[in-house]
Design a protein around this nucleic acid. Structure first.
Lengths: 126, 126
DNA sequence: CGGCATCCATTTTGATACTG
DNA sequence: CAGTATCAAAATGGATGCCG
């Protein structure tokens, strides 16, 4: 559960605040592009352009937007090199790497159940 | 990585098909409502109305849509009881429960790094 | 009660052009 | 190269009404 259950305790207000925050973070992170970007970053530092190439189908705009969001939440670190042409590196932080481990599991899951899912779809569609 | 790397092997076409399927499944599943619904289902069977109450903020439409998608992918099983008024139960299948375990980890992650993230946001916004 | 279809507002997204 | 701004197109989501 994202939001935890609790009774009317003294610091109920604090708990509610934490819950709505948890929910907000979950909404930020639980979307296709964010998770694919986190996967693509892996353990290595990547340049903006490398990410755009590796995350298939992502547009320039979506990539920037999601990277900004991930940076804001402290999941990626952004390093600007003062060169011409400019070079910007992105790396997962510790929290980012921790999240990546869970995304890895989701990817494993996808490959593991590929067959099941394909069969299920055929049954459903037919 | 959602899509795996591979060289020009004989069954390259098959692999590409599997990859695009993996990507499609990932896109289906990696969205806020789907994951929240999977979490809400947990180990128990739930009625449609119970889910609507438990998944805070979900609309009738989004719930139906996502449940249909999850059913199609074989992650939930839908049971219609021929009563008046009608009663429809939803339960996670084995693949669904397996996915839920990874979503649980994502939720744990969220609560674990709540503080870090809140701090990071403050720094970023200010 | 649960589901589907429709309409409509809002949001998201992609394409494009422009900047440092 | 990376980022921002803008605009139109497309997808999403909510509200409503009707059906079994």
């Amino acid at each position: 559960m994202v939001t935890k259950q609790y009774a009317g305790s003294p610091d109920e207000a604090d708990l509610r605040r934490a819950d709505s925050l948890a929910r907000e973070i979950f909404s930020d992170v639980a979307n296709k592009w964010a998770l694919l970007i986190i996967e693509a970053l892996g353990e290595r530092t990547r340049r903006f352009g490398e990410l755009r190439d590796e995350v298939e189908g992502v547009s320039h705009k979506m990539l920037t937007q999601n990277l900004r969001m991930l940076e804001r939440n402290g999941l990626v670190e952004r390093t600007v090199h003062a060169t011409v042409p400019p070079r910007v590196d992105y790396t997962l932080t510790e929290p980012g790497r921790a999240l990546r481990r869970t995304v890895d599991l989701m990817c494993d899951w996808t490959h593991r159940y590929l067959g099941h899912i394909e069969d299920s779809r055929r049954r459903f569609d037919g």
